[in-house]
Design a protein around this nucleic acid. Structure first.
Lengths: 245, 245
DNA sequence: TTCAGTTACTGAACACTGTGTAGCAACTGT
DNA sequence: ACAGTTGCTACACAGTGTTCAGTAACTGAA
């Protein structure tokens, strides 16, 4: 094995990358069809015309594969919500937050198994590695949401400054990023962004796991009402055109 | 077999009930130790000095056992939050809602595996029966929460009446109960109670599944801030003594 | 007390699962 | 053309839910 890595992938590396990608693609397909539990090495191998053991040449263990999948799916989620946010003008802070929230739910409804994979117990006995399964994507999500809250902070500061939050209450790495990107932002705003995350997550998680379906026929309407109430609480309701659709 | 059921349990029925109870108790113990996935018929049987097949004399299938467990655990959760609510005076509507919310999180922190069992993907490939796994307990929770929202509605009506919610948006059974218990309550209040549920669920679910732990060191403080913000939004903040502990 | 009937349970089997290991065969660079 | 690496198969092991024939224990009545 050469120490210096080739810039151009060799044939072997290319085939290897393709196989690796095929494993992940089939795993995602199986997950979309039969839920996260349907991701079994044997099922993947069967679909590829391989043996289960062969997959160990690509992923050290099944949990490794799952972790990679979580990372990929999480990235896709963050890509989606970021794109939705960026479809609104930067000046429209409330609209950007609303777009993020709506895109979050729509992605979850479209990829319920993906949502379970990221935010639930994915598979039989899977334990995420230390530091979470997809720290990179989770980090992006957190920073993105904090950015939205930062944009809204001038409106929300008046009502959301209480709560006695201090910087050491939060993760040092998160604090570092926030203080670097938004030097003026107080700790209370970080708390707010986490709470906003919680508000988005709550109704969507209940819906995905079927606890809301037996109570309301219009979960989308309910979620939108929650988002609009959130914007109102943040003092940016006027920035949204119209109250409800 | 006699058609008329004996009032006093026969020795056989007593032993049977005891064994059934032991199965559930051991299943809960295994779950508390190793997560919901640790609930395997073979492990339970091993612990009881039995064979796995023997359990089929008590539960038709593993999913049946799981469903029973969910029902039991869910009932325990509802008992807890109801007790917390009733520890406050009926006149203290805001305090009762806050007590419910705090008890909800505390129960979840104390019984994380139980929370996963109720609100997550409990076990490898478990599918809840039609109508949810524990309709009785879920019903109690929903009615209890709606009762709290009804008590708070005089304060919240002014700010929470928008959203264009109609009765047919909700489950007929839920509507029937609500309209019977609280005839004056509008549909918007039912929507509010579901949204309140979502707000409580969001942060707790994120915390239980480890997504909050990597962001904040003080999830309890964050949750309390969210609850106080909720009370403020409902217009009952003044009913709570002091802002934060 | 004896005896049939019911019930509780065992033990083995089947089809799965993840995970290792030994060996073979094909591809790779020299 | 020849080593060396690597991708994969085949098999084994331990675990899972589930079914089923057979056995042992307990129950109620003669």
């Amino acid at each position: 094995m050469s120490i210096v890595k080739e810039v151009v992938l060799s044939r072997r590396e290319r085939l290897r990358a393709e196989t690796s990608h095929e494993i992940k693609a089939i795993a995602l397909k199986l997950m979309a069809e039969g839920g996260p539990d349907a991701i079994s090495l044997r099922a993947i191998a069967r679909e590829m015309g391989m043996t289960a053991g062969a997959i160990y040449g690509y992923f050290a263990t099944r949990d490794d594969l799952i972790t990679t999948l979580i990372s990929d799916v999480y990235s896709d989620l963050v890509d989606t919500v970021e794109a939705a946010r960026d479809s609104k003008q930067v000046s429209d802070a409330g609209g950007r937050l609303l777009a993020w929230g709506e895109a979050f739910r729509e992605w979850a409804i479209t990829n319920p198994q993906g949502f379970r994979l990221i935010y639930g117990d994915p598979v039989n006995g899977y334990e995420p590695p230390e530091g979470g399964a997809a720290p990179e994507a989770a980090h992006r999500a957190c920073v993105g949401l904090t950015g939205l809250v930062a944009a809204v902070w001038p409106y929300a500061e008046r009502t959301q400054s209480n709560g006695d939050h201090r910087w050491p209450d939060f993760d040092p790495a998160l604090v570092a990023v926030v203080r670097k990107s938004f030097p003026e932002l107080p700790a209370a705003a970080v708390a707010l962004s986490l709470r906003v995350w919680g508000r988005m997550h709550g109704l969507v998680a209940l819906e995905i796991y079927g606890h809301l379906g037996s109570q309301t026929q219009k979960p989308a309407k309910l979620y939108r009402a929650e988002m609009l109430d959130l914007l109102a609480a943040l003092g940016v309701a006027d920035a949204v055109n119209g109250r409800a659709r």
